[in-house]
Design a protein around this nucleic acid. Sequence first.
DNA 1: AGAGTCTTCCAAAGCGCTTTGGCTTTTGCG
DNA 2: CGCAAAAGCCAAAGCGCTTTGGAAGACTCT
Lengths: 340, 340
Amino acid sequence: MNLKQLSHMLSLSQTTVSRALNGYPEVSEETRRRVIDAAKRHGYRPNPSARRLATGKSGMIGYVLPTGNAVDIDPHFVEFLSGLGDYARSHELDLVLSPADADDQETTYRRIVANRQVDAVYISSPRPTDRRLALVNTLGIPFIVHGRSEGFDFDYPYLDIDNEGAFHEAARLLVQLGHKRLALINGDDRETFAIHRERGVRRALAASGLALGERHICSVTMTEENGYRAARRLLEQSEAPTAIVCSSLIMALGVVRAVRDLGLTIPGDLSLVAHDDVFPWLRPENFPVPLSTTRSSIRLAGARVAERLAARISGLEQGARGEVWPVDLVVRGSVAGAPG
Amino acid sequence: MNLKQLSHMLSLSQTTVSRALNGYPEVSEETRRRVIDAAKRHGYRPNPSARRLATGKSGMIGYVLPTGNAVDIDPHFVEFLSGLGDYARSHELDLVLSPADADDQETTYRRIVANRQVDAVYISSPRPTDRRLALVNTLGIPFIVHGRSEGFDFDYPYLDIDNEGAFHEAARLLVQLGHKRLALINGDDRETFAIHRERGVRRALAASGLALGERHICSVTMTEENGYRAARRLLEQSEAPTAIVCSSLIMALGVVRAVRDLGLTIPGDLSLVAHDDVFPWLRPENFPVPLSTTRSSIRLAGARVAERLAARISGLEQGARGEVWPVDLVVRGSVAGAPG
DNA sequence: AGAGTCTTCCAAAGCGCTTTGGCTTTTGCG
DNA sequence: CGCAAAAGCCAAAGCGCTTTGGAAGACTCT
């Protein structure tokens, strides 16, 4: 059933039917009802390809997926996706993933914009002066950044959590508990979130006249193994930290293993706080010693990004509004006063 | 730059230019060169919307993403996606994720097929007589199933791993080591993979006159917490198993924790084997006691599915070819002879 | 009553591509 | 050399929608 057939069977022109369906005012309320009714009855659905060709709108949102043999998709992605899907489903929005060479995403961005394949895109894990951001900004497609960049002279719309505040709070708590030597096991420090987290920790330490030693900070991709290695390295040095703040639950798994291997205990010898993005399959309260966390549901963020993307597409949201979510500090058994 | 402009500047008709570009034979080799050359020089790229409207082909593959408040996307998905992306990237294939209510995916399948939004779809985590499979089969869109269904009277193309064989091998090893009481911590037993795994274990036990007790089998969604609970339940009963086969690394984390909480040891009191889909962020060799696994890279499967999907779209692959990958059994420190 | 203004609808022109059917021009062959 | 077949190209008709530019009739106002 296409527009032609429908309009013919209503003895109306395609114009009128199209307008009636799309809510234009140039059609009487009575005809509109008649049209909508008939459309529903016959299960008419406008052909998206045709509509897209005519309007340039696709009803999809895009994400450029960095790929490559050595490139792993972050497991956080799937949780974010769950949230995005939750919202998108109820609005008949589809998500198109365009795989791109991790080292050349620009080509892909240009392609999907030039082709009008999607109405909006989102960008995740941005870095300071991230090229994707600059590009997308000049290309003029609606977008939202999940996370934040830094060092640009223009504003842009984003959704981020208060990474600095979260890690500041975590570190402050540890300092208050008497810890003098804190360490940070961070994610890739080329990404803004990691920079912010480090900043938060440093600020908390500085407030008490302490500092984050060169050898007390690690920046690695967030795997269990890297968490283990980092922890061993930290704990086996002479000035071993008495508390560790860790950027992910997955790495925290490794930290816990390292602590055990070294015959130490949590929180007796080491206090541990990690950031929790809220995975259904790995929960901090179920760690051998319940893990204190800074918690923020990445899934909710996904839903919110979808919502704002939809709002931008429809013109409901405009401007470069940034949105920063506060992060909960959840204290559990893994922190205690400094030993000695 | 569109076709009209390009053909005009070449003093050719749109017909000829289009044919030259698409490799049709009705055009001389010389003109073809000339056209291709000009197209490249001016960076001409056919408008996909227009092409899609004319041909009905979209150059995208689809996946219906089950969503809902209580629905979590499987973390395996992201690894599969990495593989899919690897292949898709090199072939300029995009992936469109259509979120659907987990309880009503049919509507979405019908929509994306009716709208010709994608050229092919894949289906994952199928169940016996899975309705999606029957639907997609009648809708006549090219598809591939990742996993297998059962109980249909038609054949279909799929890619699966030898789940039964893998778990058979694992169980057989344990039996050979003298274990009499095996337990299985399985995934959702409404899904075929879980059924196959159980079958494999049973077969191995039966071969030695043993059986899988009613109380020695669990079927749960694969989270750390569920692994822990299942293990406790198993190990605290009177006829506690001396060996456990477990359907995922994530659950195995929970099992390890439970074993510790109970003051037992691996492999002294309990032998453990788990299935490993090969996550970059969690590796069996890094478990407190290196974990024996049945291993199969789900990422490679993703790449292969993409490859076959592409082949089906282009008509290169036809028929209902099923492909079953063997699974490696990797023995590490977590298995030993039965205690006592 | 006539002019001007809404209201309601329509015909037709795109959007940019593919493909059908047909028209010249070459080519092959007796 | 003449004729049929093949080669090479083109004009135009879709694909199914949106949107522009009217047109016809109903209404208001003086």
